[in-house]
């Protein structure tokens, strides 16, 4: 299946870079102003900002998780975002998929999100893939990216990303939510543990947002977590151990747990070296 790639080129101003390869130093004035609050952080710098501008992030799924994650990655200045989603914007999406407006209903989610984000940050490149990614396309796009965010809403896509990132030894992030249940994860193949070790190899009971609904702020919180974890991963390049952050609704808190590798896991079955 061919994949349609749409670049919101008409929204890119002359001050924009056509690709992350266009490293400039120091930051142009407008960009310095744009990122000024971030640049004031004690561990941030123009050099760090320029390094972030070189990074490429693939976000699979532009729903309740993908919208907040992409918003904050764009605002932080990740140089090249590739947004993938084959769905169209529906009225029921608007309460939690905050990049969309009533006027976007019926438009492809990836394209509509790219257009909005380009208005938010004209200094980065944002492309849209307006089809669901099949296995071959996922392999190609994951190999392209510095980091992958799984914001999809279905188990098949999550397991495919898990498998391909394991094969390519790529660190990746993801999250899942339904009802009042939710969790995010960082999986580093080098440290062992994968989504199948967590138990996701079993067919899940019918569920998801269509059957169980979803607590609107939860997907927002998870999406923001993904953005923060991604920025840390991109900026520091730290090889963290795989972990899961589990939302506990009654306590209104997240608990972080290490993801242990299952030595007999059919997907990873690796020996940790971190």
């Amino acid at each position: 299946m061919a994949t349609k790639l749409t670049t919101s080129a008409k929204l890119i101003t002359s001050a924009n870079h056509s690709s992350p390869a266009a490293l400039q130093s120091p930051l142009p004035d407008q960009q310095f102003l744009y990122y000024s609050r971030q640049l004031l952080l004690p561990d941030w710098s123009e050099q760090r900002q320029l390094q972030l501008q070189q990074k490429k992030v693939l976000i699979v799924g532009m729903g309740g998780l993908g919208c907040p994650a992409a918003t904050y990655l764009a605002g932080a200045g990740v140089g090249w975002l590739l947004l993938a989603d084959g769905d169209k914007v529906e009225l029921s999406n608007l309460p939690r998929q905050t990049l969309f407006r009533v006027s976007d209903i019926g438009l492809n989610k990836a394209e509509a999100a790219a257009a909005t984000l380009q208005q938010l940050n004209p200094f980065i490149r944002i492309d849209a893939l307006s089809q669901m990614l099949d296995e071959a396309e996922l392999v190609r796009r994951i190999a392209w990216a510095d980091l992958v965010l799984d914001c999809s809403d279905n188990l098949a896509t999550k397991l495919a990303i898990n498998r391909i990132c394991q094969q390519q030894q790529r660190c990746w992030l993801g999250a899942s939510a339904s009802g009042y249940q939710g969790y995010s994860w960082l999986i580093n193949p080098a440290s062992g543990g994968c989504l199948e070790c967590l138990g996701h190899q079993q067919p899940l009971l019918p569920g998801g947002c269509l059957q169980q609904g979803v607590y609107t702020p939860l997907v927002g919180q998870l999406g923001l977590q993904l953005a923060s974890m991604a920025l840390q991963q991109l900026a520091n390049g730290r090889r963290r151990r795989s972990f899961v952050q589990i939302y506990q609704h009654h306590q209104q808190q997240f608990s972080q747990c290490q993801l242990l590798a299952d030595p007999q896991c059919k997907c990873c079955g690796v020996t940790a070296d971190v």
């Binding site: 799924g61 729903g63 309740g64 998780l65 993908g66 914001c151 999809s152 809403d153 279905n154 188990l155 999550k158 999250a175 899942s176 939510a177 339904s178 009802g179 249940q181 939710g182 969790y183 967590l198 138990g199 996701h200 079993q202 899940l204 569920g207 998801g208 947002c209 169980q212 979803v214 997907v219 998870l222 589990i246 506990q248 608990s255 747990c257």
Partner: peptide
């Protein structure tokens, strides 16, 4: 001990 449901939504 934390027991949590496996879900697949977003």
């Amino acid at each position: 001990v934390l027991i949590f449901n496996l879900v697949a939504g977003g």
